[in-house]
């Protein structure tokens, strides 16, 4: 449907969305994945994203906004190119998760949900990311780093700083 329409997304993502909405008994089921995939491409959920998703799913923009505000991974402001998410939940806490968080704060010079001035990094303290047996664990965007020490964390940040970091989308 939307291929001949104007879209704010890349042709690949627009085509992906065209297909996605056909997979479910009800089109709206595609909303949560579409929000996340839009964010991956645009960087955050912009007002334009909300309008286009509402249009594609034949729902109101405030339906999209109400869903958007519920999920913790979705955001309405840009973050750093590399979003460093440090887990401090119980298993990570017992394995120095807070130490890793403090180290990241110091090294990057930013706090929870802040972005470095060059826009390269942002930092977030997050709840359990499902890597408890390999704690402490961190996610940079979608990539997991586990069994961390302060030294290993530095290595991870060095790699991203130098543009050698892993990037799964």
């Amino acid at each position: 449907m939307a291929t001949e329409k104007r879209t704010i997304f890349s042709p690949e993502l627009a085509a992906r969305f065209d297909r996605l909405v056909t997979l479910y008994p009800v089109k709206r089921s595609a909303l949560v994945p579409m929000l996340l995939y839009s964010q991956d491409e645009v960087g955050y959920i912009s007002p334009e994203v909300i309008v286009e998703l509402a249009d594609r799913l034949d729902i109101r923009t405030n339906d999209v906004e109400s869903v958007l505000s519920y999920y913790s991974m979705l955001r309405t402001k840009p973050v750093g190119k590399y979003n460093v998410q440090v887990c401090t939940n119980i298993s990570c806490m017992l394995r120095n998760g807070y130490g890793i968080l403090e180290h990241c704060k110091k090294r990057l010079g930013i706090g929870h949900k802040e972005v470095t001035p060059d826009g390269l990094f942002s930092l977030e303290e997050v709840e359990c990311i499902g890597a408890c047996c390999w704690a402490p664990a961190v996610q940079v965007n979608y990539d997991f780093y586990d069994d961390l020490t302060v030294e290993k964390m530095d290595q991870v940040l060095d790699d991203y700083q130098a543009g050698r970091g892993k990037v799964t989308v």
């Binding site: 119980i90 298993s91 709840e127 359990c128 499902g130 890597a131 408890c132």
Partner: peptide, 11 residues
């Protein structure tokens, strides 16, 4: 949706 802290088996 494995999210219970302490749980990483489905992973």
């Amino acid at each position: 949706d494995e999210s219970e802290p302490g749980t990483c088996k489905d992973h």
